[in-house]
Design a protein around this nucleic acid. Structure first.
Length: 854
RNA sequence: GGAUGCUUAGCUCAGCGGGAGAGCAUCGCCCUUACAAGGCGGGGGUCACAGGUUCGAACCCUGUAGCAUCCACCA
């Protein structure tokens, strides 16, 4: 027997361990159809936040639902080494102990990093348990484990041999704090306040000056030219002359190129090939050298002369001051411009010429674009997110994959000690003859292999054969570029298939004011606190049912509370059913012949509910599915049938109560497995765990349309009379006399009306008397005897008639419309016809009553 | 500059071609033996605006405005 109150702490106790140890999460039943998914691997950097809950609870609902539907579900868990992020954390920890990574050296540092990983994996496991993830621990993976190492090396080597990975000098994004290259999408742009410096450049051999504006004066030591637009009349006579760089006094050619925007700044632009991607292109076009003036910490190098060793911003300040003193500063303007910051360190990213490894994206991207037009495409839910992928694939630049870090997959390229030639090899080469590349790969390089490498690729494993491609992937829209796109092109290239059939995209969770949750705002919500307060089931329910796919949602304490209340409602309904069934009750099949009208009513509603919920579940519309169930639980079951069953507790009713509550428990289970398990195990007859149960059947043979109608009439009668009492100031429990005309709509209705309307008597009469309130239901009318003057009664009937006439007119108009009859679906037409005849009947009844009143 | 989403009840959001919905809040009545973390009954909306398509538009199309996000550019 369940306790009086739903106590989530008690309910959650021990269940996860039981499932896990019972092997319920382990895939491999070959008698079933496979269904597979991989977890978006959390970074080993920190603790669980609500974003992880958003990522993984839909996965868990899908996994639990599909298991009940008879699939062999494999859900692969794992964690991501998260290169830059983790290395930064480990370094920070070491720094607190007064150690730098260089003190330790590469090998020792990696030992520390692996210790960190072990520590955080343990935490992550606890967190998975606390939110109830049904992942298959026997197949857990790590992005740096042996299998992934093998896969990464195979991919790198293959792409290199195919010419799709190359090493080259390019302008890349440099993070001077972490001292590594970054890919374009690891740079976050923000509109920052800055200064626009206008400098005067003397023209050699002329008594003239031109004005060049820049936001980065310190890079002037690397300038090779000044460019203007060839159509710009202001400079037409000066092109071809030399100008003096006010930073170092060197002569620079004044050149013309259409790249320069006449209307921007002064129309004259300095060209710094080693520190700006556009200038780099110009320099290549005209054969200028690429002069670097910054080192890897963004400090000035020897070319900056007296400023050598200075930080870039200090140098900027000092240099501007000196140029001003020399009379070459025209003005300084405050501007707001977009500045790139490192996603991880926040440092202002320096575009810098550097030798790095790149993936040649065009051919790989084209393959994705082609695949998305084929039958093997990935279906996005919602559809619009496919465009995000396509747009990125259509325009992305080559991917800079080398990182000047230690924590990650070391690049399997080796340089000959003899002649410096490059060899890429999956197996280590003799260190006496070769030096391995010092750098590691971008974290997303290995994450991109996740769906197939975790199943055994490049080996031909049974799991790979059985579970690849995976069925569905759930992730947020913010990492479509980072992750989804890379999994898709890597998978297409190496397995020939898309890595998953469907991608379900969810939005981000925000705080109660709609702001992003962030560390700096301190507005993050710790799921552990939420679980302690409301229970994990309430959290799971809240997070999957309060938004629509792809849309952001706000955290709401109120809605969590509402979720917990809903669970308490089901809990108590279950408790009531158990109290009613009694200790000795033995579940048995429902005797179809022994059903009364309301039994038939609730079974019909249940059957329809199951069908509707299942349809939404299959489409991954968890919000829609849950609201269908919610309506059934509250309106049809708790407020109506369950109350009515208190009157008519005859033979079959107990079986029906049992059947319905069990179905509700099974339907809510994927969302709220803990409370569902607790309730399930308290039922008279059960397996070892709800995880051994199947999804409820639709029960097509148990639909009784006429009983459904009768039930709805009774529902409406009760509502009408209660409303009448409230409206006329009668107490809810005031005894009233009811008359039904011309006869009772179904046998046994008297008992329900007596109990719920406190009827003092119920009569059946062919004609209704005067002096009370009358309600019409089409074929049956209800009379409530109560003092009401004739005028009021007539006014009310007139109002009713006006309303019904409008209804009838509407129906007739619709049904006489040839366009409607030709184009509307058949069911819709039938529905309108039924509605019309019912309204006509009600109208006739109302008119007859009015006539009698005179 | 390009793209996407949002604008519906006081608040937070569903609905996305066939009669405006939920939760919370609000008002009134109830401690009815499953649940007061409850029950019952009510009030509350020209579905941002303007055009168009349709027999029929909150829903589709076009445009406008506001808010949000992403991408690109920014000497």
């Amino acid at each position: 027997m369940l306790d009086k109150r739903y106590d989530h702490l008690q309910v959650e106790e021990g269940k996860y361990e039981k499932w896990k140890e019972g092997g319920y999460f382990t895939a491999g039943d070959k008698s079933k159809q496979p269904f597979s998914l991989v977890i978006p691997p959390p970074n080993v950097t920190g603790k669980l936040h609500l974003g992880h809950v958003m990522d993984t609870i839909p996965d868990d609902i899908i996994a639990r639902y599909k298991r009940m539907k008879g699939f062999d579900v494999l859900w692969v868990p794992g964690v991501d080494h998260a290169g830059i992020a983790t290395q930064a954390k480990v370094e920070e920890r070491l720094r607190k102990q007064g150690i730098s990574r260089y003190d330790l050296g590469r090998e020792k540092f990696l030992e520390k990093a692996f210790e960190w990983k072990e520590e955080y994996s343990a935490t992550i496991h606890k967190q998975w348990a606390s939110i109830g993830l049904s992942v298959d621990y026997t197949r857990e993976r790590f992005t740096l484990d042996e299998g992934l190492q093998k896969a990464v090396k195979r991919v790198f080597k293959t792409l290199y041999d195919e010419g799709l990975i190359y090493r080259g000098e390019r302008i890349i994004n440099w993070d001077p704090e972490l001292r590594t290259a970054l890919s374009n999408i690891e740079v976050v742009h923000s509109d920052d306040e800055g200064e626009f410096f206008y400098f005067l450049y003397d023209v050699v051999g002329e008594d003239k000056q031109i004005v060049v504006a820049t936001t980065r004066p310190e890079t002037m030591f690397g300038d090779v030219a000044v460019f203007v637009n060839p159509k710009d009349k202001r400079f037409a006579d000066l092109v071809g002359k030399k100008v003096i760089n006010p930073a170092n006094g060197q002569e620079l050619p004044l050149m013309a190129d259409p790249y320069v925007d006449i209307s921007f700044g002064t129309g004259a632009m300095k060209c710094t090939p080693a520190h700006d991607p556009n200038d780099f292109n110009l320099a290549k076009k005209y054969g200028f050298p690429f002069i670097k003036v910054l080192d890897e910490s963004a400090k000035m190098n020897e070319l900056a002369g007296e400023y050598k060793g200075m930080d870039r911003y200090e140098c900027r300040k000092a240099l501007v001051e000196r140029i001003k003193e020399q009379g070459h500063l025209q003005k300084i303007e405050k501007i707001v411009h977009s500045v790139g910051h490192s996603e991880r360190s926040g440092a202002v990213v320096e575009p810098m010429l550097s030798k790095q490894w790149f993936v040649k994206m065009r051919p790989l991207a084209e393959a994705v674009l082609a695949s998305q037009k084929s039958a093997g495409k990935v279906d996005f839910i919602p559809k619009r997110f496919e465009k995000v992928l396509l747009r990125w694939m259509a325009s992305c630049d080559d991917w800079c994959i080398s990182r000047q870090l230690w924590w990650g997959h070391r690049i399997p390229a080796y340089y000959s000690k003899e002649d410096g030639s490059v060899v890429v090899s999956e197996t280590p080469l003799d260190p006496a003859l070769y030096d391995q590349d010092e750098d590691v790969l971008d974290t997303w390089f290995s994450s991109g292999l996740w769906p197939f490498a975790t199943l055994g690729w490049p080996d031909k494993t049974p799991d790979f054969d059985r579970y690849f491609p995976t069925s569905v992937l759930v992730t947020g829209y913010d990492i479509i570029f980072f992750w989804v796109s890379r999994m898709v092109f890597q998978s297409l290239h190496f397995t020939g298939k898309s890595p998953f059939k469907q991608v379900v995209i969810h939005g981000l969770i925000r705080d109660e004011q709609g702001r992003k949750m962030s560390k700096s705002l301190g507005n993050g919500i710790d799921p552990i606190d939420v679980i302690a307060k409301y229970g994990v089931d309430a959290l799971r329910y809240f997070i999957t049912t309060n938004s629509t796919p792809g849309q952001d949602m706000r955290y709401s304490d109120e809605k969590l509370s509402a979720s917990a209340n809903y669970l308490n409602k089901i809990w108590n309904a279950c408790r009531y059913v158990e109290l009613t069934l009694g200790e000795d009750y033995q579940p048995k099949d429902i005797d179809k012949k022994g059903l009364n009208t309301l039994d038939q009513y609730i079974l019909t509603r249940l059957s329809k509910t199951i069908a509707a919920v299942e349809k939404k579940m299959d489409a991954y519309q968890f919000g829609a599915a849950s609201s269908i169930l919610y309506d059934f639980v509250y309106d049809d079951f708790c407020s109506f049938y369950l109350e009515m069953s208190k009157v008519s507790g005859d033979g079959a009713t107990k079986d029906v109560l049992f059947h319905v509550i069990k179905s509700i428990i099974l339907l809510i289970y994927p969302y709220c497995p803990f409370i569902a398990e607790e309730m399930y195990l308290s039922l008279p007859k059960h397996q070892n765990s709800i995880m051994e149960e199947s999804y409820p059947e639709e029960m097509k043979g148990y639909r009784f349309p006429s009983s459904e109608k009768k039930g709805n009439i009774l529902k409406q009668m009760i509502k009408d009379v209660r409303s009448y009492k409230s409206e006329t100031g009668l107490a809810p429990n005031e005894a009233v006399k009811l008359i039904l005309s011309p006869k009772l709509p179904f046998k046994g209705i008297e008992a329900y009306l007596t109990r719920f309307l406190f009827a003092k008597s119920i009569e059946e009469a062919p004609e209704l008397p005067e002096g009370g309130r009358i309600y019409n239901y089409g074929g049956v009318s209800l009379f409530v005897e109560h003092e009401e003057d004739k005028g009021t009664a007539k006014a009310r009937l007139n109002e009713e008639i006006t309303r019904l006439e409008a209804e009838v007119a509407r129906g007739e108009k619709m049904l006489s419309n040839p366009g409607f009859l030709a184009k509307a679906p058949k069911e819709k037409i039938k529905l309108e016809q039924d509605k019309l005849s019912l309204n006509k009947q009600k109208l006739a009844e109302a008119k007859a009553q009015l006539a009698k009143l005179g």
